[in-house]
């Protein structure tokens, strides 16, 4: 077993742990945390793929590494939007839960 298999297993484990957190935690903030964890697990798998592609003096395939960097920034913006939405919801309603999913309230104009 080389080190890369460890990283691959770790990435898969993180996806699993994040998925558990997503399903089990009803609070949106914890769900946001879980999403970030799943995302970082996926990025780690990208890193494994990059390392496997090491060649010609480069420590890893640079394309997956670039994809990870882009992905981290995109994930951060998604988190920022989700947090802003959650805080606004809390400010407007006093609660920070998603509540029931039936046709919520009166439709808008």
């Amino acid at each position: 077993m080389n080190a890369l298999t460890l990283f691959g297993l770790c990435g898969s484990a993180l996806v699993g742990v994040g998925l558990y957190g997503l399903i089990v935690n009803p609070q949106p903030l914890r769900k946001i945390l879980a999403f970030n964890m799943i995302g970082s697990g996926v990025f780690l798998l990208f890193g494994v793929v990059a390392r496997r592609g090491a060649a010609l003096g480069m420590g890893g395939d640079p394309v997956p590494q670039a994809l990870v960097i882009t992905g981290i920034v995109v994930a951060f913006s998604a988190t920022a939007l989700a947090v802003a939405l959650l805080l606004r919801l809390h400010e407007a309603t006093g609660s920070a839960t998603l509540g029931a999913t039936d046709g919520d309230g009166a439709p808008g104009v």
Binding site: L22, P28, K31, F35, I38, G39, V42, A78, L81, A82, L85, L86, R88, L89, A92, T93, L98, G99, T101, D104, G105, A106, G108
Partner: peptide, 21 residues
């Protein structure tokens, strides 16, 4: 900006993020 729509928007965002990941 109505509160019910904020909740619906958050739910939409969470489903969408699930899809993205």
């Amino acid at each position: 900006g109505r509160p019910e729509t904020l909740r619906a928007a958050l739910r939409y965002l969470l489903f969408a993020l699930f899809g993205s990941v």
